[in-house]
Amino acid sequence: MKKILLSNILKNFSNNDTLFKTPEKLLLCKGSQKRFKIEFSNSSKLKEEITALQKQYKGQMIIGAIPFDQNTKATIIVPDKHEYYQESDLIDDLHIDPQSLTIEHSIDIPNRQQFNEMVQNAIDYINDKQFNKVVLARTLNFRLEADPQISSWLTNLMHKNKQGYIFSIETGHLQNLIGASPELLVKKEGNIVTINPLAGSRKQTFNEVKDADLEKELLNSEKDLHEHKIVVDYMCEKLQPYLSDIEFNKKPMILYTDTMIHLSTVITGKLKNDTMNALDLAELLHPTPAICGEPQKQALAFIQETEPFKRGLYTGLVGYMDSNGDGEWVITIRCAERNNKDITLFAGAGIVNSSLQDSEFNEISAKFTTMLDAMGLKEN
């Protein structure tokens, strides 16, 4: 097969196309034979719709975005046509595409004082043993003077996030979900299942010596190891009835993204029941302690009562599934929602009893950098 320039793919990408790139391949979708929205709170209805779609459009795959907030509708697409490119088929000739965006106004919700109060409130709840961990988020909101060209953002995200999961999905008229998630929720290939939770982070300094020190700090941080263990234990407990031969690294490894250093654990196993598909597994795990908290019910209630905005698709799922039930779903983080000229960026941090307010605020600011850099913007 003739090799394809990544720049050519992105040059011909329009805002209403769909793209999902993994470290191994790129999926490009044009048009839609079928597009529907459905409330994720009715998961059985969602499964029925997807099963019916795959029977109707034999051999076709689906791609979509599933929300964290159950009052937001999931977007599911059966593309009119799609193309797979293996990484070996692509020539990475991308360079930073400078942006010239003009901002009419911007606001961060919550502000620093409000967020610090949220963190202290969460710590009080943890000390009162109402939950062990909760993830709290912030948003940056921009109004642009002109419609953005998403292909430029994707160019910059792909250039700087070689190991990330890059995505862009049209979720409505002049509405898009764009991002570069570092976190694979679940990948299913035949009966082999892979999960890669992340929890515990530091901002990169891009100084080799300092970053090596941050690695050691992370690997020996009681707070971060505790936060990470909560997530890994949850995943294994949820998967135990459905997977055999579960394996994972007993101590977290280090994973670098474009701006952050994370604690990472890769979990693998074999499906006991071959009727389970990739989306079944994703729904089994979602929402994880990495983006919600533990116990899930109490943490979720706290988030809904405390955060002064609706998460919508942020910390939901984005991915694809083929007619065999194989596919990949990633957690929707390091992302932005575009609604015409209004842009909302989201990022969050895990709060445990040893969390420090300013550290959590600054960690979220570092996570915003992925999308801010792609857009050529800066946090106020």
Results as ranks from 00 to 15, higher is better:
104 E>W: 10
90 L>S: 05
124 D>V: 01
92 D>T: 08
104 E>R: 06
89 D>R: 00
89 D>V: 03
75 T>G: 05
89 D>E: 12
97 D>S: 12
135 V>M: 02
99 Q>F: 12
117 E>M: 06
83 E>G: 00
80 D>S: 05
148 P>S: 06
94 L>E: 09
142 F>W: 08
110 P>Q: 04
152 S>W: 12
137 A>M: 05
141 N>G: 07
145 E>L: 13
130 Q>F: 04
105 H>A: 09
147 D>C: 07
141 N>C: 11
87 E>L: 03
155 T>W: 09
140 L>P: 06
131 F>Y: 09
114 Q>T: 12
141 N>Q: 13
111 N>D: 15
100 S>V: 12
154 L>A: 08
126 I>R: 00
96 I>T: 15
69 D>S: 11
95 H>T: 15
83 E>L: 04
127 N>M: 03
117 E>A: 07
127 N>H: 12
146 A>L: 14
80 D>W: 07
79 P>N: 00
145 E>V: 15
110 P>G: 05
135 V>K: 01
89 D>G: 03
99 Q>W: 10
145 E>H: 15
140 L>H: 02
116 N>M: 07
120 Q>E: 11
103 I>T: 12
157 L>F: 10
118 M>P: 10
84 Y>A: 01
81 K>S: 11
109 I>Q: 00
111 N>A: 06
157 L>G: 05
156 N>D: 07
99 Q>E: 12
118 M>L: 06
113 Q>F: 15
136 L>H: 03
143 R>L: 15
97 D>T: 10
148 P>V: 10
96 I>V: 15
105 H>N: 14
147 D>H: 13
89 D>I: 03
113 Q>H: 14
96 I>S: 09
99 Q>K: 09
136 L>A: 01
138 R>N: 01
84 Y>Q: 02
160 K>P: 10
100 S>A: 09
75 T>L: 08
133 K>I: 03
81 K>T: 11
104 E>K: 08
84 Y>N: 06
128 D>F: 08
137 A>N: 07
158 M>E: 13
110 P>S: 04
78 V>P: 13
115 F>V: 02
91 I>Y: 11
126 I>P: 04
141 N>S: 12
100 S>F: 15
158 M>Q: 11
75 T>M: 05
126 I>W: 02
126 I>D: 02
95 H>L: 11
103 I>G: 04
140 L>T: 01
152 S>H: 14
77 I>Y: 09
148 P>Y: 08
89 D>Q: 05
97 D>K: 06
91 I>W: 12
142 F>N: 04
152 S>K: 14
123 I>M: 01
87 E>I: 07
86 Q>L: 08
150 I>G: 12
143 R>G: 10
142 F>D: 03
140 L>S: 01
79 P>L: 00
153 W>I: 14
96 I>N: 09
117 E>I: 06
76 I>D: 07
84 Y>S: 03
128 D>Y: 08
140 L>R: 01
119 V>L: 04
149 Q>H: 14
74 A>H: 10
138 R>G: 01
70 Q>I: 13
97 D>F: 13
128 D>C: 02
112 R>V: 09
74 A>V: 08
68 F>K: 00
